[in-house]
Amino acid sequence: MRYVKAGKIKETVARLCLEANFNLRPDVLEALKRAYISEGNRRAKRILKATIDNARIAKKDKLAICQDTGMPVVFVELGQDVHIKSGLLTDAINKGVESGYNKGFLRNSIVADPVLRGKSGYQPAVIHTEIVKGNRIKLTVLPKGFGCENKGRVRMFNPTVGMAKIKEFVLEVVKKAGPDACPPFVVGIGIGGTQDYACLLAKKALLHKLKAKSEKLKTMEQDLLKEINKLNIGPMGLGGKTTALAVNVEKYPTHIAGLPVCVNISCHATRSATTII
């Protein structure tokens, strides 16, 4: 048994909130730079250049990459040999978010009631906890902006449809997101499980390193990326071949009667930060 103080979790989450919002993920920045080189459309190239400049300014001046500092989504992989002392895990995470967002002058985008709205604050975060082997805690903060979050879709397909229908659905979601959701996107796709689980898989897929492709899913991801980049949506939706930087898929077993597919769109400012305690 290993003891970890709730205070340590709070501090770590606070730090991750700042890191994610100020420093664009190195794999996303690399993908933007590759796109800048290969993009042929002049306006698209100029916008990609400005996007790379924006990331540099944000890092240097400790400014949020985007003013929509998101709804913080926190993934916890909690080793089952860890005991958290002096506080609750959920409280520690939310206090960490509050402290990090406050310290970084980030945006208070969270309303306590989704219908009545009211004054906005920094938290609560959306927290996904998984119990895993070992005595460590892996924490990931993914601040998810809502320009792109609003464009996600889930569909429950018949179990008899094939890959072609899934592809068609993904392309339809990307087209509908279009210029509004800040392309070039990272497209997260969850296939399988239940309706809710497919959505969680799609969100988790955003965390994959953009270049490190799993052998099993590589063909599907690359095929989809190629198709998406033929849509000529481009940066800001003003044309070009850079509509998505990557397509990331996560799969899970499902029921004989169904085939849930969720597509989560993430903007060019796909941000996350991870550490292990």
Partner: peptide, 20 residues
């Protein structure tokens, strides 16, 4: 636009456009 909070010593924080 809904900017972030204003960091000390600056005029404004991050302040891009939101979905029209």
């Amino acid at each position: 636009c809904g900017p972030t909070k204003t960091p000390k010593g600056r005029v404004i924080g991050s302040c891009g456009p939101t979905t029209s």
